[in-house]
């Protein structure tokens, strides 16, 4: 009854989905152009709101910032490529150096070396607010980002210039096959992030985070760089097209309404059990008490 080959090594995965992709090829190419345009437009809108949200967060944190370090970020943003690296270095030396070292080489028991992690890793860690870290603990929680988009790009430029590493992709990150993305997600991601990206517990206080707040680029960067406990899904394991399919599936599922009513966390039997005992049995006990008073 297996629908796919149980073996999960890369060549088999490649070969198996080559056929799937060939079957889906026609429909993917023939999808209405207007839908694609609309998706790009909505993507632009999303990006705009993301930027707006970031700027708002920056204003809030800015007050505290200027008290400690009166550097002018707006001036830095308007400089050239090489000065972006310089600005990134300035940010790095202010906010990252204590754990990652003066030359990105890392500090024993505090932070890993950043040489060769690439801009993708910087984007994921800083854009999800995980870095700068609040404290050392089992894993870093997502929080509102500390840096603006412009500052993140400067940090990315600085880290990329020192050792290289994975870079961020461009283009539509949802350009993929939805159903294939689902199969790949269940095969590669669900064992930690759960069927629908709700996340799940790992050992010793670590956890695979929910993908609820993750944007396309963050998911892509996470697959590319394997942050924290996550394995790296390099382009040999999951091709860029397959990554885009997975992102398409995750984001489609998030936007999809629950046809059966309230989703109760899409967590399955545990929340259903809670509902039947609290709501179901609760309501019926109330009902029979009521009938008792009518005796």
């Amino acid at each position: 009854m297996s629908t796919t080959n149980p073996s999960s090594d890369a060549p088999t995965t490649e070969g198996r989905f080559a056929g799937l992709r060939a079957r889906f090829g026609g429909r993917s190419a023939g999808s209405p152009a207007s839908a694609a345009r609309a998706r790009r437009r909505s993507k632009q809108r999303r990006r705009m709101t993301n930027v707006a949200g970031l700027m708002a967060a920056l204003v809030l944190t800015g007050v505290g910032y200027s008290a400690i370090a009166p550097a002018n970020a707006a001036d830095d943003a308007a400089t050239t490529q090489s000065s972006a690296e310089a600005a990134g270095q300035a940010l790095y030396e202010r906010s990252c150096i204590s754990c990652h070292g003066s030359n990105l080489q890392g500090v024993q028991d505090r932070g890993p070396s950043l040489i060769g992690v690439g801009e993708a890793s910087v984007y994921f860690q800083v854009h999800t607010g995980r870095m700068p870290l609040v404290r050392q603990e089992a894993d870093a929680a997502r929080k509102p980002p500390v840096f603006s988009d412009a500052e993140i790009e400067q940090l990315m430029a600085y880290v990329q210039a020192n050792g290289g590493g994975p870079t961020l992709p461009s283009g539509d990150l949802r350009e993929g096959d939805l159903a294939e993305g689902g199969e790949l997600f269940r095969l590669n991601c669900a064992s930690c992030h759960n069927f629908v990206g709700e996340g799940g517990a790992l050992s010793s206080g670590k956890a695979a985070p929910s993908l609820e707040d993750a944007n396309d680029m963050e998911i892509y960067a996470a697959m590319l760089t394997g942050p924290e406990n996550m394995p790296v899904f390099g382009d040999n394991q999951l091709t860029p097209e397959e990554k885009r399919s997975i992102i398409d599936y995750v984001q489609t599922l998030k936007e999809q309404a629950d046809p059966g009513g309230a989703g109760i966390g899409r967590a399955g039997p545990v929340s259903e059990g809670l509902v039947i005992w609290v709501v179901g049995i609760g309501a019926l006990l109330f009902g029979i008490f009521w009938m008792g008073t009518k005796a």
Binding site: M1, T3, P6, L187, S191, G200, P269, V270, E272
Partner: peptide, 14 residues
Amino acid sequence: YNPAQVSAGSQPDW
């Protein structure tokens, strides 16, 4: 169902 796949948070009914 696919024997190669398993999800986090798989529970039976209560």
